[in-house]
Nucleic acid binder design. Structure first.
Lengths: 148, 148
DNA sequence: CTAATATCCGACTTAACCACTAGGATTTAT
DNA sequence: ATAAATCCTAGTGGTTAAGTCGGATATTAG
Protein backbone atom coordinates (compact mmCIF):
# COMPACT_ATOMS: atom_id res chain seq x y z
CA UNK A 1 0.00 0.00 0.00
CA UNK A 2 1.87 3.00 -1.25
CA UNK A 3 -0.97 5.52 -1.37
CA UNK A 4 -1.39 6.67 2.21
CA UNK A 5 -4.72 7.27 3.90
CA UNK A 6 -4.23 11.01 3.43
CA UNK A 7 -4.63 10.67 -0.31
CA UNK A 8 -7.47 8.20 -0.07
CA UNK A 9 -9.39 10.21 2.52
CA UNK A 10 -8.80 13.42 0.60
CA UNK A 11 -10.21 12.00 -2.60
CA UNK A 12 -13.21 10.53 -0.81
CA UNK A 13 -13.89 13.83 0.94
CA UNK A 14 -13.93 15.61 -2.41
CA UNK A 15 -16.37 13.04 -3.79
CA UNK A 16 -18.58 13.71 -0.79
CA UNK A 17 -18.40 17.47 -1.35
CA UNK A 18 -19.14 17.03 -5.05
CA UNK A 19 -22.58 15.70 -4.19
CA UNK A 20 -23.85 19.14 -3.23
CA UNK A 21 -22.87 22.76 -3.70
CA UNK A 22 -23.95 23.85 -0.25
CA UNK A 23 -21.49 24.15 2.62
CA UNK A 24 -20.76 20.89 4.38
CA UNK A 25 -19.13 20.83 7.84
CA UNK A 26 -16.17 18.52 8.41
CA UNK A 27 -17.93 16.36 10.99
CA UNK A 28 -20.55 15.41 8.43
CA UNK A 29 -17.95 14.28 5.89
CA UNK A 30 -16.04 12.53 8.64
CA UNK A 31 -18.99 10.50 9.83
CA UNK A 32 -20.26 9.65 6.36
CA UNK A 33 -16.83 8.48 5.27
CA UNK A 34 -15.84 7.10 8.66
CA UNK A 35 -12.70 9.18 9.07
CA UNK A 36 -11.22 10.74 12.21
CA UNK A 37 -12.48 14.33 12.40
CA UNK A 38 -9.23 15.94 13.48
CA UNK A 39 -7.28 14.05 10.90
CA UNK A 40 -9.67 15.01 8.13
CA UNK A 41 -9.39 18.61 9.29
CA UNK A 42 -5.69 18.59 8.46
CA UNK A 43 -6.32 17.00 5.09
CA UNK A 44 -8.95 19.59 4.20
CA UNK A 45 -6.59 22.37 5.29
CA UNK A 46 -4.01 21.09 2.82
CA UNK A 47 -6.61 20.84 0.08
CA UNK A 48 -7.79 24.37 0.82
CA UNK A 49 -4.27 25.72 0.43
CA UNK A 50 -3.97 23.70 -2.78
CA UNK A 51 -7.11 25.35 -4.10
CA UNK A 52 -9.45 22.37 -4.34
CA UNK A 53 -11.89 23.51 -1.65
CA UNK A 54 -13.11 26.71 -0.05
CA UNK A 55 -14.14 27.14 3.54
CA UNK A 56 -16.34 29.43 5.57
CA UNK A 57 -15.83 29.83 9.28
CA UNK A 58 -18.32 30.34 12.05
CA UNK A 59 -21.45 28.58 13.22
CA UNK A 60 -22.91 27.69 9.83
CA UNK A 61 -19.53 27.26 8.19
CA UNK A 62 -18.10 24.33 6.31
CA UNK A 63 -16.44 23.36 3.06
CA UNK A 64 -17.38 23.29 -0.60
CA UNK A 65 -15.48 22.57 -3.79
CA UNK A 66 -13.55 25.56 -5.04
CA UNK A 67 -14.14 24.57 -8.67
CA UNK A 68 -16.08 22.23 -10.89
CA UNK A 69 -15.66 18.55 -10.00
CA UNK A 70 -14.85 17.91 -13.65
CA UNK A 71 -11.82 20.18 -13.34
CA UNK A 72 -10.17 18.35 -10.44
CA UNK A 73 -8.19 15.24 -11.35
CA UNK A 74 -7.24 12.46 -8.98
CA UNK A 75 -3.61 13.10 -9.94
CA UNK A 76 -3.62 16.69 -8.68
CA UNK A 77 -5.22 15.70 -5.41
CA UNK A 78 -2.91 12.80 -4.70
CA UNK A 79 0.18 14.80 -5.58
CA UNK A 80 -0.94 17.69 -3.38
CA UNK A 81 -1.49 15.38 -0.43
CA UNK A 82 1.33 12.90 -0.88
CA UNK A 83 3.99 14.47 -3.02
CA UNK A 84 5.61 12.68 -5.93
CA UNK A 85 4.23 9.37 -7.14
CA UNK A 86 7.49 8.32 -8.76
CA UNK A 87 8.19 4.63 -8.09
CA UNK A 88 11.91 5.20 -7.62
CA UNK A 89 14.03 8.24 -6.77
CA UNK A 90 15.87 8.50 -10.09
CA UNK A 91 12.58 9.00 -11.95
CA UNK A 92 11.71 12.16 -10.08
CA UNK A 93 15.27 13.43 -9.95
CA UNK A 94 17.77 11.96 -12.36
CA UNK A 95 20.70 13.42 -10.41
CA UNK A 96 19.83 10.84 -7.76
CA UNK A 97 21.30 8.20 -10.04
CA UNK A 98 25.00 8.42 -9.31
CA UNK A 99 25.62 5.39 -11.44
CA UNK A 100 28.37 5.32 -13.98
CA UNK A 101 27.03 2.31 -15.84
CA UNK A 102 23.43 2.17 -16.95
CA UNK A 103 21.53 -0.19 -14.68
CA UNK A 104 18.97 -1.17 -17.31
CA UNK A 105 15.95 -0.55 -15.11
CA UNK A 106 15.38 3.15 -15.61
CA UNK A 107 13.12 2.87 -18.63
CA UNK A 108 10.97 0.33 -16.82
CA UNK A 109 10.42 2.70 -13.92
CA UNK A 110 9.80 5.63 -16.23
CA UNK A 111 7.14 3.66 -18.01
CA UNK A 112 5.48 2.70 -14.74
CA UNK A 113 5.53 6.33 -13.63
CA UNK A 114 4.13 7.68 -16.89
CA UNK A 115 1.36 5.09 -16.95
CA UNK A 116 0.21 5.79 -13.41
CA UNK A 117 0.30 9.52 -14.03
CA UNK A 118 -1.77 8.96 -17.14
CA UNK A 119 -4.43 6.94 -15.35
CA UNK A 120 -4.75 9.23 -12.35
CA UNK A 121 -4.77 12.27 -14.61
CA UNK A 122 -7.69 10.85 -16.57
CA UNK A 123 -10.00 10.50 -13.56
CA UNK A 124 -11.83 13.55 -12.27
CA UNK A 125 -13.74 13.93 -9.03
CA UNK A 126 -16.89 14.01 -11.17
CA UNK A 127 -15.99 10.57 -12.57
CA UNK A 128 -15.52 9.22 -9.07
CA UNK A 129 -18.84 10.62 -7.93
CA UNK A 130 -20.57 9.00 -10.89
CA UNK A 131 -18.91 5.70 -10.06
CA UNK A 132 -19.94 5.97 -6.41
CA UNK A 133 -23.55 6.64 -7.41
CA UNK A 134 -23.54 3.71 -9.81
CA UNK A 135 -22.14 1.34 -7.21
CA UNK A 136 -24.64 2.47 -4.61
CA UNK A 137 -27.50 2.02 -7.06
CA UNK A 138 -26.30 -1.53 -7.70
CA UNK A 139 -26.25 -2.23 -3.97
CA UNK A 140 -29.78 -0.92 -3.57
CA UNK A 141 -31.05 -3.17 -6.32
CA UNK A 142 -29.45 -6.23 -4.82
CA UNK A 143 -30.75 -5.63 -1.32
CA UNK A 144 -34.20 -4.82 -2.70
CA UNK A 145 -34.51 -8.02 -4.71
CA UNK A 146 -35.17 -11.03 -2.49
CA UNK A 147 -37.12 -12.61 -5.36
CA UNK A 148 -35.42 -15.60 -6.95
CA UNK B 1 9.26 6.61 -4.10
CA UNK B 2 7.26 3.55 -3.29
CA UNK B 3 9.62 0.87 -4.62
CA UNK B 4 12.22 0.53 -1.89
CA UNK B 5 15.93 0.10 -2.49
CA UNK B 6 15.61 -3.61 -1.77
CA UNK B 7 13.58 -4.13 -4.90
CA UNK B 8 15.76 -1.87 -7.00
CA UNK B 9 19.03 -3.38 -5.78
CA UNK B 10 17.66 -6.88 -6.19
CA UNK B 11 16.71 -6.30 -9.80
CA UNK B 12 20.04 -4.66 -10.58
CA UNK B 13 21.93 -7.52 -8.98
CA UNK B 14 20.07 -9.98 -11.19
CA UNK B 15 20.92 -7.96 -14.28
CA UNK B 16 24.56 -8.08 -13.20
CA UNK B 17 24.42 -11.84 -12.73
CA UNK B 18 22.71 -12.29 -16.08
CA UNK B 19 25.83 -11.02 -17.82
CA UNK B 20 27.69 -14.23 -17.15
CA UNK B 21 26.95 -17.79 -16.14
CA UNK B 22 29.99 -18.16 -13.93
CA UNK B 23 29.88 -17.66 -10.18
CA UNK B 24 30.07 -14.05 -9.08
CA UNK B 25 30.89 -13.10 -5.46
CA UNK B 26 28.71 -10.53 -3.69
CA UNK B 27 31.46 -7.99 -3.27
CA UNK B 28 31.89 -7.79 -7.03
CA UNK B 29 28.19 -7.11 -7.61
CA UNK B 30 28.20 -4.66 -4.72
CA UNK B 31 31.08 -2.63 -6.05
CA UNK B 32 29.92 -2.64 -9.66
CA UNK B 33 26.43 -1.53 -8.64
CA UNK B 34 27.61 0.61 -5.73
CA UNK B 35 25.54 -1.12 -3.05
CA UNK B 36 26.42 -1.83 0.59
CA UNK B 37 27.85 -5.35 0.72
CA UNK B 38 26.10 -6.46 3.89
CA UNK B 39 22.79 -5.08 2.71
CA UNK B 40 23.08 -6.80 -0.67
CA UNK B 41 23.88 -10.01 1.16
CA UNK B 42 20.45 -9.94 2.78
CA UNK B 43 18.75 -9.18 -0.51
CA UNK B 44 20.52 -12.07 -2.25
CA UNK B 45 19.56 -14.39 0.61
CA UNK B 46 15.92 -13.53 0.03
CA UNK B 47 16.29 -14.07 -3.70
CA UNK B 48 17.99 -17.40 -3.12
CA UNK B 49 15.08 -18.58 -0.96
CA UNK B 50 12.71 -17.33 -3.63
CA UNK B 51 14.54 -19.43 -6.22
CA UNK B 52 15.97 -16.71 -8.47
CA UNK B 53 19.63 -17.38 -7.69
CA UNK B 54 21.86 -20.22 -6.52
CA UNK B 55 24.91 -19.89 -4.32
CA UNK B 56 28.10 -21.78 -3.62
CA UNK B 57 30.01 -21.26 -0.41
CA UNK B 58 33.73 -21.25 0.24
CA UNK B 59 36.72 -19.45 -1.13
CA UNK B 60 35.70 -19.53 -4.78
CA UNK B 61 32.01 -19.27 -4.05
CA UNK B 62 29.46 -16.78 -5.27
CA UNK B 63 26.09 -16.45 -6.94
CA UNK B 64 24.57 -17.28 -10.29
CA UNK B 65 21.08 -17.15 -11.71
CA UNK B 66 19.05 -20.23 -10.84
CA UNK B 67 17.20 -20.11 -14.17
CA UNK B 68 17.16 -18.44 -17.54
CA UNK B 69 17.05 -14.64 -17.39
CA UNK B 70 14.12 -14.78 -19.81
CA UNK B 71 12.12 -16.71 -17.22
CA UNK B 72 12.43 -14.19 -14.40
CA UNK B 73 10.07 -11.24 -14.55
CA UNK B 74 10.51 -7.94 -12.74
CA UNK B 75 7.14 -8.53 -11.10
CA UNK B 76 8.22 -11.76 -9.39
CA UNK B 77 11.38 -10.18 -8.10
CA UNK B 78 9.76 -7.04 -6.75
CA UNK B 79 6.95 -8.98 -5.11
CA UNK B 80 9.43 -11.41 -3.51
CA UNK B 81 11.47 -8.54 -2.09
CA UNK B 82 8.74 -6.04 -1.22
CA UNK B 83 5.46 -7.86 -0.87
CA UNK B 84 2.26 -6.59 -2.45
CA UNK B 85 2.34 -3.70 -4.89
CA UNK B 86 -1.29 -2.77 -4.32
CA UNK B 87 -1.69 1.01 -4.14
CA UNK B 88 -4.32 0.85 -1.39
CA UNK B 89 -5.24 -1.77 1.20
CA UNK B 90 -8.71 -2.58 -0.16
CA UNK B 91 -7.22 -3.71 -3.48
CA UNK B 92 -5.16 -6.47 -1.93
CA UNK B 93 -7.78 -7.42 0.64
CA UNK B 94 -11.33 -6.29 0.02
CA UNK B 95 -12.35 -7.06 3.61
CA UNK B 96 -10.22 -4.04 4.54
CA UNK B 97 -12.96 -1.85 3.14
CA UNK B 98 -15.42 -1.58 6.00
CA UNK B 99 -17.40 0.98 4.13
CA UNK B 100 -21.14 0.73 3.84
CA UNK B 101 -21.43 3.17 0.98
CA UNK B 102 -19.30 2.79 -2.10
CA UNK B 103 -16.56 5.39 -2.05
CA UNK B 104 -16.23 5.59 -5.84
CA UNK B 105 -12.46 5.20 -5.87
CA UNK B 106 -12.06 1.45 -5.79
CA UNK B 107 -12.17 0.88 -9.54
CA UNK B 108 -9.54 3.57 -10.03
CA UNK B 109 -7.16 1.84 -7.64
CA UNK B 110 -7.87 -1.56 -9.16
CA UNK B 111 -7.02 -0.23 -12.56
CA UNK B 112 -3.75 1.27 -11.31
CA UNK B 113 -2.87 -2.03 -9.66
CA UNK B 114 -3.65 -4.14 -12.71
CA UNK B 115 -1.71 -1.84 -15.01
CA UNK B 116 1.42 -1.87 -12.88
CA UNK B 117 1.25 -5.64 -12.52
CA UNK B 118 0.92 -5.89 -16.28
CA UNK B 119 3.95 -3.73 -16.99
CA UNK B 120 6.24 -5.35 -14.44
CA UNK B 121 5.11 -8.79 -15.53
CA UNK B 122 6.08 -8.03 -19.11
CA UNK B 123 9.73 -7.19 -18.33
CA UNK B 124 12.21 -10.02 -17.83
CA UNK B 125 15.74 -9.82 -16.46
CA UNK B 126 16.90 -10.57 -19.99
CA UNK B 127 15.05 -7.47 -21.24
CA UNK B 128 16.72 -5.34 -18.59
CA UNK B 129 20.15 -6.68 -19.46
CA UNK B 130 19.57 -5.87 -23.11
CA UNK B 131 18.50 -2.35 -22.16
CA UNK B 132 21.57 -1.90 -19.96
CA UNK B 133 23.86 -2.99 -22.79
CA UNK B 134 22.14 -0.69 -25.22
CA UNK B 135 22.44 2.30 -22.88
CA UNK B 136 26.09 1.57 -22.20
CA UNK B 137 26.81 1.29 -25.90
CA UNK B 138 25.18 4.69 -26.41
CA UNK B 139 27.35 6.18 -23.69
CA UNK B 140 30.48 4.77 -25.27
CA UNK B 141 29.62 6.28 -28.63
CA UNK B 142 28.99 9.72 -27.15
CA UNK B 143 32.22 9.82 -25.17
CA UNK B 144 34.15 8.56 -28.19
CA UNK B 145 32.86 11.20 -30.55
CA UNK B 146 34.44 14.60 -29.94
CA UNK B 147 34.06 15.28 -33.68
CA UNK B 148 31.38 17.79 -34.53
C1' DC C 1 47.18 -27.27 8.78
C1' DT C 2 46.25 -22.75 8.25
C1' DA C 3 44.97 -18.64 6.23
C1' DA C 4 42.16 -16.39 3.18
C1' DT C 5 37.96 -15.89 1.03
C1' DA C 6 33.41 -16.76 0.59
C1' DT C 7 28.44 -17.39 2.05
C1' DC C 8 25.20 -17.49 5.96
C1' DC C 9 22.62 -15.70 10.03
C1' DG C 10 20.60 -12.85 13.69
C1' DA C 11 20.55 -8.75 16.21
C1' DC C 12 20.86 -3.93 16.48
C1' DT C 13 20.41 1.11 15.09
C1' DT C 14 19.02 5.52 13.35
C1' DA C 15 15.97 8.31 11.18
C1' DA C 16 11.85 9.12 9.11
C1' DC C 17 7.03 8.64 8.40
C1' DC C 18 2.03 7.44 9.23
C1' DA C 19 -2.13 8.00 11.40
C1' DC C 20 -3.72 9.89 14.39
C1' DT C 21 -4.74 12.69 19.22
C1' DA C 22 -4.81 16.93 22.26
C1' DG C 23 -5.65 21.42 23.23
C1' DG C 24 -6.61 25.64 22.30
C1' DA C 25 -7.41 30.18 19.29
C1' DT C 26 -10.44 32.45 16.20
C1' DT C 27 -14.66 33.40 13.62
C1' DT C 28 -19.63 33.70 12.95
C1' DA C 29 -24.81 32.87 13.52
C1' DT C 30 -28.47 32.77 16.83
C1' DA D 1 -23.27 35.13 25.52
C1' DT D 2 -23.11 30.80 23.74
C1' DA D 3 -22.76 27.27 20.52
C1' DA D 4 -20.87 25.67 16.43
C1' DA D 5 -17.76 25.79 13.23
C1' DT D 6 -12.88 26.40 11.11
C1' DC D 7 -7.95 27.13 12.08
C1' DC D 8 -3.27 26.06 14.01
C1' DT D 9 0.63 23.89 16.48
C1' DA D 10 2.46 20.10 19.02
C1' DG D 11 2.95 15.70 20.51
C1' DT D 12 2.73 10.44 20.33
C1' DG D 13 3.08 5.54 19.56
C1' DG D 14 3.94 2.25 16.26
C1' DT D 15 6.10 0.73 12.06
C1' DT D 16 9.31 0.59 8.39
C1' DA D 17 13.62 1.63 5.52
C1' DA D 18 18.15 1.20 4.97
C1' DG D 19 21.51 -0.02 6.52
C1' DT D 20 25.51 -1.65 10.26
C1' DC D 21 27.85 -5.06 13.26
C1' DG D 22 29.68 -9.26 14.74
C1' DG D 23 30.35 -13.67 14.24
C1' DA D 24 29.45 -18.80 12.50
C1' DT D 25 30.23 -21.90 8.80
C1' DA D 26 32.08 -23.72 4.43
C1' DT D 27 35.63 -24.22 0.89
C1' DT D 28 40.00 -23.66 -1.42
C1' DA D 29 45.00 -22.31 -1.99
C1' DG D 30 49.39 -22.56 -0.29
Amino acid sequence: MWISTRGQYGLRALVELAQTNTLMPIHKIAERQDISLHYLEQILATMRRAGFVQSERGATGGYRLARDAKKITALEVIVALEGSLAPVACVEDSSQCSHVNACGTESLWRRVDATITGILGSYTVADLLEEARFQNALKMMKSQAPLE
